[in-house]
């Protein structure tokens, strides 16, 4: 059973995003297939050069770089949202696959969760 976790909220302003990441890492810890999809304002998780030290938080950009090591299968982002927020070559972190049809993407998974 492959789980897709969808993140549609921006990073840092609330704890729900951290909880989404915890959920993904926990599934990966038990070798349950899991992927992450960033949509809407959630694509801001994928910006390069984040520095959260001044707000006393940890960089989700750096956290996400551990995703592949922990066995998370894919990081995906909605292409139109990336365009809306000016994310592309040089601004989007490496290793993100962009998708164009959310309806089709979500229906490729057995379980889709919007945490928070």
């Amino acid at each position: 059973m492959h789980t897709l976790i969808v993140i549609d909220r921006p990073p840092y302003g609330s704890w729900s995003g951290r909880e989404s990441l915890d959920m993904a890492f926990s599934l990966a810890a038990f070798d349950q297939p899991v992927s992450l999809l960033f949509v809407g304002e959630g694509v801001l998780w994928l910006s390069q050069r984040q520095d959260a030290s001044a707000i006393a938080q940890k960089s989700v950009e750096r956290n996400l770089k551990a995703a592949a090591i922990f066995g998370i299968e894919a990081l995906m982002a909605d292409q139109s949202a990336c365009q809306r927020f000016g994310l592309g070559d040089g601004t989007l972190i490496d290793g993100v696959e962009t998708v164009t049809d959310l309806r089709v993407t979500m229906r490729r998974y057995d379980h889709v969760v919007f945490p928070g």
Partner: peptide, 22 residues
């Protein structure tokens, strides 16, 4: 080194093992 790179400790034993393996 892992903490410096990822700003987090491996969250669980199993993920610690995975990170060391990698």
């Amino acid at each position: 080194f892992f903490y410096k790179e990822h700003e987090m400790s491996p969250p669980s034993n199993r993920l610690f093992v995975k990170a060391v393996k990698e």
